[in-house]
């Protein structure tokens, strides 16, 4: 397979995942804003923007007034924002188009259709009454692509590269959510036990669509330590860091099997995998949740760069 094709499938998957993650974050932010006062909701919107790494771009365009409608339009469709959901979907489609021969017809059609639907949907500013529907459509379209991908793609290298892209991006996203919100999960604050904290914790879970799963696993009880454990170490939850690591390892293993040898990415991944396998949430807190997350984000990025290098994405 061409290095450029591997690159295209990898980034196609990353952009799709990124678009979906942004939609989830906006949804959580919106929910929070609906139930809180203006100051808290501005704060929430600022943290959403910070999580996706676009605070600077937003402030350059609109200053520091994090009004909800402005924020979500910036994140969804603003032309001045190269990281908007619409731009991500366009980038995903453009990558898919350039690797058209590595994808099944169903996958290509699903991506192309998603692009057509969302381009249309995001052609005009999204007003509050329509936001829920817009976000649901984004999630539905990305789900459609995922379904086509899962149902029709050969389990070969193209599949592996796309899955690697998905889980590099997803791990990064979950880690960033934790990184921005880690302070609400720290024990010192947990003891305060105010209702605001409850809402904050819920919001963290919501932004990874993990609220229902968490409650189901924990019989409705909610505590910061449990949430941290769930998002970092629970291998059953498909957006947890450990789940992403398992998927990365399995797809890297697929490549090693097909190519007959391992690369630097495998080496890095083994180190990360061991660290997670042996960790307990107590150790994570003892060593510092923030440091742990930071370390994960850095290693995850190193793995992505190693994949790009080892498999000749660019040169």
């Amino acid at each position: 397979m061409l290095g450029r094709t591997a690159n295209g499938t990898f980034w196609m998957a990353r952009y799709l995942e990124r678009a979906e993650n942004a939609a989830r974050l906006i949804e959580a932010g919106f929910r929070m804003a609906l139930t809180r006062d203006a100051t808290t909701s501005q704060e929430e919107w600022r943290s959403v923007i910070t999580t996706v790494g676009q605070a600077r771009g937003f402030e350059a365009a609109y200053g520091s007034d994090f009004a909800g409608e402005r924020v979500w339009n910036f994140l969804l469709r603003d032309k001045s924002n190269p990281g908007s959901v619409l731009a991500m979907i366009e980038a995903a489609r453009s990558n898919a188009r350039s690797v058209r021969t590595a994808l099944t017809r169903e996958v290509w059609e699903a991506i192309n259709e998603s692009w057509m639907v969302l381009k249309d949907l995001l052609a005009r500013p999204v007003r509050e009454p329509l936001l829920g529907q817009v976000l649901a459509t984004i999630r539905r379209q990305v789900t459609l692509v995922r379904g086509a991908f899962d149902g029709t793609m050969l389990r070969n290298e193209a599949y592996n590269f796309a899955r690697l892209g998905t889980f590099i991006e997803r791990g990064d996203s979950t880690a960033r959510i934790l990184d921005v919100k880690y302070y609400v999960l720290l024990p010192s604050l947990a003891w305060v036990g105010s209702s605001l904290d409850n809402v904050q914790w819920e919001s963290v879970l919501r932004s990874v669509s993990g609220d229902r799963a968490y409650r189901w696993l924990n019989a409705g009880g909610i505590d910061p330590r449990g949430i941290a454990e769930f998002l970092v170490l629970d291998r059953r939850f498909p957006r947890s860091l450990h789940f992403c690591i398992d998927e990365l390892r399995s797809n890297l293993f697929g490549l090693a099997h097909e190519y007959g040898h391992e690369t630097e990415a495998h080496e890095l991944m083994r180190g990360l995998g061991t660290r997670f396998h042996e960790a307990t949430i107590q150790q994570v807190f003892d060593a510092g949740l923030h440091e742990f997350i930071q370390n994960f984000i850095a290693t995850n990025q190193q793995v992505a760069r190693a994949i790009e290098r080892d498999y000749r994405f660019y040169a």
């Binding site: 397979m1 290095g3 450029r4 591997a6 021969t101």
Partner: peptide, 23 residues
């Protein structure tokens, strides 16, 4: 067949070769 662009190809050892994930 492979769909290649100019940047995927180069002359290597007297042949035109494409940059694959294996070299």
């Amino acid at each position: 067949a492979e769909l290649v662009e100019g940047s995927d190809l180069r002359v290597v050892d007297g042949r035109v070769a494409m940059r694959t994930t294996r070299g």
